[in-house]
Design a protein around this nucleic acid. Structure first.
Lengths: 187, 187
DNA sequence: CATATAAGTCAACATGGTTGACCTAAAGCC
DNA sequence: GGCTTTAGGTCAACCATGTTGACTTATATG
């Protein structure tokens, strides 16, 4: 369907290609957030709640500081939504026995159910898009998306941990895709 | 680099794949908006200004209603930023002689210069990501992204208009990639 | 013990979205 | 010509979610 016309100079297309990339990104993200936003609005939540629920579900046992690093918002901003989510029993905080300053966050059953409900439309979107595009296209999609993610630390969340990776064993994470390491570097 | 391990059951990976897609989208979009946001903040503008400048530059001569359909925000919300952009001489409105109710929007020289400045980091991101991923991956990326865009009307903005497309000639648009048609259908 | 880190809190403010009510001008239609 | 629809704009109130800045408490760590 989308095939380059043979003989067209790629350098001529490049600028338009970049613009199309930028623009597709806008439309896709706009549509991507649409359905969850509606579900959230029904119970007086917003997109910020979704993000917190999502990442707490994804990285169960995450600390507040780690969550802040992912979301890249201020503590005060997170506090507002996180407070509500704890109050309304979507998320529990328990003290880390190994470092009592830390609060480890995880979803309650209610939180998990809601997370599933919110993610359902987004999964459906991706499922359809992946299926229609085919496995090869999906690999290309992943490659480009990874290239768009700035920090190595973030890209690492998506690399399949290879055997002999240095971290001394990959099977201990439990829920997430591993790679919630401390980094303290980068920009 | 990202290669499926041979022998792994695709059905086992699927759920994790969907999650990773969702999550990559979050990180990429977060990083994608970062640098323009900084430039905007310097002169007291926000992301909303960027979107308006971008789409007015992209579809020069666009009407207010068409812009609203793209942005999917309310007239009042657009009015706030558009008003400032006109006031500060980034955008001009001229009456459409063929339908005097319409105001056709376009960038001033100042607006074009600013648009270029804002887009530069985003182009650079895509340029690098595209180059590193390779042409084949880019085609896959586009395929998946198109699948993520809900409305046919929006997807059409990215299809190369084939010869004999029905619209009676494709060379009249001037600036944009054509496909700013009236639709009045869909959800 | 001094300092650094993790987490939380209060307050004030900005951006950018929303709804609702209402207005003017021009176009389209019977 | 006159009614209705469309394009555009405006005022007001409100909400969600981000910001900065100042400060507190508890715990770790050198």
């Amino acid at each position: 369907m989308v095939d380059l016309k043979p003989g067209v100079n790629p350098l001529f297309l490049r600028d338009e290609d970049l613009r199309q990339g930028i623009e597709m990104f806008f439309y896709a993200y706009r549509d991507f957030t649409n359905q969850p936003d509606e579900i959230l609005a029904e119970i007086g939540f917003g997109r910020a709640h979704h993000r917190v629920i999502y990442f707490v579900g994804r990285y169960s046992g995450i600390t507040v500081t780690q969550l802040l690093e992912i979301l890249q918002i201020t503590k005060q901003s997170l506090s507002r939504v996180l407070g509500q989510l704890v109050e309304l029993d979507y998320i529990v905080q328990r003290q880390n026995p190994a470092d009592k300053r830390q609060r480890l966050l995880s979803l309650t059953d209610k939180g998990q159910a809601f997370e599933a409900q919110l993610s359902a439309p987004q999964r459906a979107m991706f499922s359809r898009a992946y299926r229609e595009a085919g496995a090869e296209a999906v690999q290309g999609f992943r490659k480009v998306m990874l290239g768009l993610i700035e920090a190595e630390a973030d890209r690492r969340r998506f690399t399949v941990p290879a055997a002999g990776d240095g971290d001394g064993g990959t099977g201990t994470q439990g829920t997430g895709p591993a790679n919630l390491r401390r980094s303290r570097g980068g920009s």
